[in-house]
Design a protein around this nucleic acid. Structure first.
Lengths: 136, 136
DNA sequence: TCCTTGTTTATAATTATTCTAAAGAAGATT
DNA sequence: AATCTTCTTTAGAATAATTATAAACAAGGA
């Protein structure tokens, strides 16, 4: 069980004051057993449904972006009209069920080590992400 | 050198009549030494610059989508406000230079074999794509 | 040539995202 | 607690990518 104090800490670390709206967003994001994938719109609706209080869309965008910048959320590279985020920020990969448009986590140990045998001068590797598309 | 006849064939295979505009788009897409990455907007401008004739944006969208559906173009999963396509439809991966927002091909043999040790009942793997983000 | 069907185009509509500016809340200082 | 400054929320406007529309036009077959 994540405490409210932890949310406040996360917010302060992200240079955000702990307001009621932002703590509600934290409840939806971090107060759950399993990590999950979401779009801004999903989150916007979940906050309303789960906390019973509404928040403006702009606040959701701002808060999510601040958390992403700080590393509390991970952006999932996928071709979609909407941007997907993940509360699981550890190094891991994804299945994408093309038919159902659903994301499924793929633990890092579920994917063998990935060797990148090419380098670009002056650049270093920041991250390596695998997207496995699924079909029936 | 790719011939006009091949473009016509590609178009017919995609259930598109070989019109002047579409052949111009083919010239830009397929009549080059190296494969390349582009957004719809890039292509829209390249057609104008390289063929000297303009084409409507809607035609570019329609043609690209038909080619993508048929498998003549590959969509690159990347978090960007615009959708990126690739004329290289073989199984391969990408570097993404985050700072310069530039894509670089990564041949399949530049990445060691990728073992997916998890499976989803009723689903099979359609593709496995690696995105390597680069920083300075 | 005529006819049917598919295409192009400019423009409108839609959708995701970002911006703006005014009203309100947080935190520090006294 | 009163006050002050700075940050935040919010609704709505602005922007940008993409998709839909409908009228003028072109392709291909009879």
């Amino acid at each position: 069980m994540t405490s409210k104090q932890e949310f406040i800490e996360k917010l302060r670390n992200s240079s955000l004051r702990p307001t009621k709206q932002r703590i509600n967003i934290c409840e939806v994001l971090f107060n759950r057993d399993k990590t999950f994938h979401f779009t801004i719109n999903d989150l916007f609706n979940l906050v309303k449904d789960e906390t019973g209080e509404k928040v403006s869309l702009a606040t959701v965008y701002n808060t999510v972006h601040a958390f992403h910048k700080k590393g509390y959320l991970k952006e999932i590279p996928i071709n979609s009209n909407q941007t997907y985020f993940d509360t699981n920020v550890t190094d891991h990969h994804h299945f994408f069920d093309v038919k159902e448009e659903k994301l499924i986590d793929l633990k890092n140990e579920d994917v063998g080590p990935i060797e990148i045998q090419k380098s670009i001068p002056g650049k270093k590797i920041k991250s390596v992400e695998v997207l496995v598309k699924l079909e029936d």
